[in-house]
Design a protein around this nucleic acid. Structure first.
Length: 259
DNA sequence: ATGCCTCAGCTCCTGAGA
């Protein structure tokens, strides 16, 4: 089973790239079974369900105007769909969850937080708390669970192109990392670090100042898997190929292969 | 401190992203 997450930064702009990428994965011999998308930036009526259906994918989506918006694509139908975090009041579309082939998949676009100390940072902290409470309960009923998406949090210095210059800046603060570790403590694993990785592996690069060319990036897109799934993990990589497209997203897909 | 880039939108500037 192959699962992936990709913040596309506007699905309207990136749809051809998403379709091309899915097609390339299929052509390689291992099609993507589940793809979580973030930052659709479109209302639900604009979602290109027909294009994905033509490509062989079922879709669950949860959008809003201008900002946020998430979707789950799957080769087989998704059931028990949940949108946003039950019990956490939120006027932004950030989460879509569903069960695919017996695996509980949660796709999420975590709040950015803007700047430590800001209202948006405070919202990020509350959102993270709400997410954790819900995921904790989900793990009880769904031992096979994947939590993937744009976390907007780095784990440590390995995930930063400039650990000194970026120390304590947004995505790299101790408060944010506390919540990330608290998710891990529920019985989840950072699938990327289960494997040897190239040094300076990132999933996002700033559009500005040639961030990608100079590999000035952050690893903020993650695929966390439950204890039960850990023994099945075979590989996890960042696929930088789509970042080399003309007009790319600032994020690259992260891809996990399970036995 | 700001722009550097990209995207959406009550679009020729602004807010937000990260």
């Amino acid at each position: 089973m192959k699962l992936a997450t990709w913040n596309v930064n506007s699905l309207s702009v990136r749809l051809p790239q998403v379709l091309d990428w899915l097609q390339a994965q299929t052509a390689s011999g291992t099609p993507v079974d589940v793809l979580a998308l973030q930052e659709l930036k479109m209302t639900d009526d604009k979602f290109p369900a027909a294009a994905f259906e033509a490509a062989g994918y079922c879709a669950q989506w949860f959008g809003q105007k201008t900002y946020n918006g998430v979707a789950l694509l799957s080769l087989t139908p998704a059931v028990d769909v949940v949108k946003n975090i039950p019990g956490f009041d939120d006027d932004m579309a950030r989460v879509v969850a569903a069960t695919v082939e017996g695996v509980r998949v949660i796709g999420a676009y975590f709040p950015n937080g803007q700047e430590p100390g800001s209202d948006k940072f405070e919202y990020k902290m509350e959102w993270l708390k709400g997410l954790r409470q819900w995921v904790k309960a989900e793990l009880v009923t769904h031992p096979k669970l994947v939590l993937m998406g744009d976390y907007n949090i780095t784990f440590d210095e390995l995930d930063m192109w400039d650990p000194v210059g970026l120390k304590d800046t947004i995505h790299c603060t101790e408060e944010e990392r506390y919540h990330l570790r608290a998710l891990i403590a529920l019985g989840l694993h950072d699938s990327f670090r289960l494997f040897d990785q190239p040094p300076k592996s990132f999933s996002w690069w700033d559009y500005r100042e040639s961030g990608f060319r100079r590999n000035r990036g952050l690893r903020i897109d993650h695929i966390l898997i439950s204890d039960t799934l850990k023994p099945l993990a075979q590989a996890c990589i960042v696929d930088k190929a789509p970042r080399k497209n003309e007009r790319p997203s600032d994020h690259a897909p992260v891809v996990l292969t399970l036995a």
